[in-house]
Design a binder for these strands. Structure first.
Lengths: 256, 256
DNA sequence: CGTTCATTTGAACATGCTCAATTCCTGTGG
DNA sequence: CCACAGGAATTGAGCATGTTCAAATGAACG
């Protein structure tokens, strides 16, 4: 996921934080305002857990994973990031990062210092709104992911993961049906909470069912419909059916 | 978790959003500035998924659960809330709530309209900081919870849940060792992603091991140490060991 | 080419779910 | 005050999903 240099200015103008780089008045004289951005390579670390929080970042190109560390030393990947994503939001909590960010491929990143950010928030309603929206979005993403962990079996989780990636790529103007995974099987297994053997088996299964073609990092989705069906079919909502679906006091509206 | 009316003013002064209610200048003449708050009862809904986002809320007393709804109609609880918690942060994402909030007992809530909030953010650095901190905290909480879902077995998840509650109560000046659960076993099972029978079995197990005493909603922790050991002992980090713990390129620092 | 890492595949086993029945609490009405 | 009904919680036994362990295969890289 890299962009030609010709696209960079346009990339900046559509950035969620563009208000910081381009003043209200001169959105047109953009050329000179492209914020300096730093290039990182595969396996580079943007910041580590425990490190002082002094900036947030926007991923311009490439991809990264964020992870936290359990007491037992276990690394848990909490998300993957793609161009346009805000990174480092975990730091507002207590002044130091709780996550670590590691790049999965060559990537470029804009840094927005905390002082600069706070100034912008004081002066611009759209910056305030965009930042809150970004954080809220991250929260909702985690909620939905949580749902899939608690609610779905391995096959459904993996299908869901692939569909999610597909949507991410589509949203960024790339192919929704054919793409390269930037993470290893180990990363996928970690993220989805299953053994890497299970990931492997399920991928071959999907391939045998003519739903995807997969070869190493390359994935081709043969049928988005069938992949979607994997989520709904063979569902068995075992956990947590509340007894009174029609009760006005109850939150859920329908129970299978 | 309810507070006497005598404590309410003090409660407001320590509120994370107090800057909105009390101007910088007159933090002392507090009496008259206590924001009107609304009382809800058990099973009441604060807002539902899909509802227009027009305010955030602060829980003053009581407790609540937030949940989202899967396509299949399955309700997934994404968190429990206690006094001081910010509620409704999910709405910044796209202008409508993705969560639903349901009270678990009689509770009182302050409402802060979006306009009012944005004004306050424009004018007060501490409001900006507090809101971002609150959202970041919520994010980090979810990350840690995600880790426990992917990383721990049922016994560990339940122990972790109890310890978490204990810490929440302690932080709010209540007993860390003896408290009432405001949620049902069904809620616990839903949240922790297991069957309610498993919750039940594990609680009796913990009781037989003289780690807790539990009777219906009442929980007494006999040994916080032993409960903590439940998290670390019998650990078996099966998933996701990355091969090179000492590699500088790798995020985690140690692997069991 | 040989070493290393990533991935795949197979077979046994374990955790935790499902189904079913029972017990325990709480509130309600006789 | 007691009997009864309904929900919540507990307990037991069988079973399924997905893990563990072990070994083989495949791709990449020096």
């Amino acid at each position: 996921m890299t962009k030609s240099t010709a696209q960079q200015t346009s990339l900046c103008q559509h950035c969620i934080m563009s208000g910081i780089c381009f003043g209200q008045s001169d959105k047109n004289s953009a050329e000179s305002k492209v914020r300096s951005h730093k290039i990182y390579h595969k396996s580079d670390i943007l910041f580590r857990s425990g490190q002082t929080f002094d900036a947030i970042y926007i991923l311009r190109s490439g991809s990264a994973k964020s992870s936290i560390l359990a007491n037992c030393g276990h690394e848990q990947i909490s998300g993957f990031h793609y161009p346009g994503d805000l990174i480092g939001l975990d730091g507002f909590d207590n002044g130091s990062h709780s996550q670590s960010i590691k790049f999965l491929e060559t990537s470029s990143v804009c840094r927005i210092g905390l002082g600069e950010l706070d100034n912008a928030m004081a002066n611009s309603a759209s910056i305030r709104s965009n930042l809150l929206q970004g954080m809220s979005h991250a929260l909702n993403n985690e909620d939905r992911f949580l749902l899939s962990l608690n609610n779905m079996n391995s096959a459904q989780r993996l299908s869901s993961f692939l569909l999610d990636l597909s949507a991410q790529f589509l949203q960024r103007g790339l192919s929704a049906k054919e793409f390269d995974l930037s993470m290893t099987r180990v990363d996928i297994a970690n993220y989805l909470g299953m053994a890497i053997e299970t990931v492997s088996r399920l991928l071959t299964q999907l391939q045998q069912d003519n739903i995807i073609e997969v070869q190493r990092r390359r994935v081709k989705i043969l049928s988005l419909e069938k992949l979607n069906q994997c989520l709904t079919l063979e569902r068995d909502p075992h956990i947590l059916l509340t007894p009174n679906p029609s009760d006005a006091n109850t939150i859920q509206t329908r129970v299978a």
